[in-house]
Simulated scan of single mutants.
Amino acid sequence: MIKKLFMRDFRNFSEVSLSFSDKLNVLTGENGQGKTNLLEAIFFTGMLRSFRTSRVADMKKIGSQSFYISCEADSDGKWTKKLEIEYGELRKLKIDSSIVKKASEFIRNLMTVAFSPDDIAIVNGNSRIRRRFIDICISMESPSYMSALLEYSEALLSRNRLLRSVSPDIKILRAFEPVMAEKASVISKYRLDYSELLKKEMQKILCDYMRDETDFDIRYRNSSGTFSKDEYMNKFEKERNKDILRKMTSFGPQTDEFDFFLNSKLLRCFGSTGQCRFISLCLKMAELNLLLKTEENIKKAVVLVDDVTGELDSRARDYFFKVINRAGQTFFTFTSVPTDKYFKEASIYKINSGRVASLYV
C-alpha cells in the first residue's frame, strides 16, 4: 500500500507531497482539477504504464521536459520501499535509491488495478485495447511475460523499420526473426492460459451476481495459428517476401484478438452499451480476483476507482465493494464528498487546480 506520494511536473501538478490512509481514500473536486491525474500517477508507479494513454509525453506537465514520481510503499509493516520514477528523454527507475534497469524488476512492488469509465472499450473497442488489457493483467503476475513482451516489441519495431526502408536487407531481417519467434511463442502461451483463467473467473462472477446461468466465453484468436517457435520461424520464412511488399510484419502477437461472447453473442458487434459496460466492469473485477489469489498480492494491491459507481444500483454496488474491499488499499474519485455507508471510515482529500488538501484523515 502507498504511505506517501510525491509528484513533480506530472500532468497539472507542479509539485505535491501527500500521505494516505492505509485502507480507503477519497479524492474530491470538480471535473478537470486533477483527481484522475493523481490516480494515473499511482497506477503508473505500479505498472510503468498509464490506464489513459500510451504516450508518456502526455503525462508531462505542459512546458516541462520531464516528470518525477516518488512513492513510499509499505506491506503491512513488514517492509517499506521507496520507488522512484523520472521520465525525461530517458527513463530512470530506482528502488531504495538503487538504480533498476529492467521494468520487470520494478513493477511487482506495487500492484495497481484501475476501474475507469473508459473500460467499456475493452469490450467494444479495437483489438489493441483488448491486447493491452490482457498484457497488463499477465504482466502483474509474471515478470517473464513482461520481459518477453518488451523484447518482442523492440525486435518488431526494428524489423518494421527495416521493412519500410527502400531496399530491406534480407540477412538483417532474418537476424530479428529467431528472437521474435521465441518471444512470440512465450507470449501466445501465456495469453491462452490467462484467457482460460479469466473466462472461469468471469463465469463465477456472473453466476454469483446474476444468480442464474449466464453463458460467457472468451476466445483467444492467435493470428499466427501457432504456439511453437519452430512454426513461427517457418511462418517468417513463408511471409517474408509478402512483408517486404506490405512494409510491415503481418502476423504475431501484435495482431492477436480476444473475442468476448455473452449468451453466444459477440459483444463488440452485437452487445448493447449497457451490456458492454457491465461486462467491462466484471472483467476488471475478475482481473482483481485473479490478482488477489495470494496474501502477498493482497497486501500489495492498490485499487483505483475513477467515477464508475454512479450508475450502479444498490445490489451492484454492494457486490462491487465486496470484491474490491479485499485489496490492501483503495482510492475513489468523486465531485463531492460521498455520504453513503461505504465511505464512513474514508480519508477525504480535496483537489483544486493541481493542489491537494486533506479535509479529514
Rank of each mutant, 00 (worst) to 15 (best):
K299G: 07
S188A: 15
K238E: 05
E257Q: 09
V305D: 03
T255I: 10
L267F: 07
T255Y: 09
I205V: 09
D313G: 01
T214N: 14
T294A: 07
F216I: 15
R211T: 13
P253C: 07
L266C: 06
Q254E: 15
T309Y: 06
R268M: 11
L266K: 13
T294I: 04
E296S: 15
V186E: 14
K235R: 11
L304S: 09
G252Q: 01
T294C: 04
S223D: 15
E177G: 01
L192H: 14
E213H: 12
E213T: 14
M180P: 06
Y209K: 14
G310M: 11
D215A: 11
R219M: 13
F260L: 13
D193N: 12
L291S: 02
L206E: 08
T249Q: 11
Y220Q: 05
D256P: 14
T294V: 05
E231A: 14
K229V: 08
C276P: 10
K200N: 12
S195E: 03
Y190F: 15
Y220E: 03
S228D: 09
G252L: 06
P253K: 03
D217K: 14
M285L: 10
M285F: 05
N263W: 07
M180A: 03
E239Q: 05
C276K: 11
N241M: 10
N222R: 03
M285H: 07
R211Q: 13
G274P: 07
F258T: 07
R277D: 10
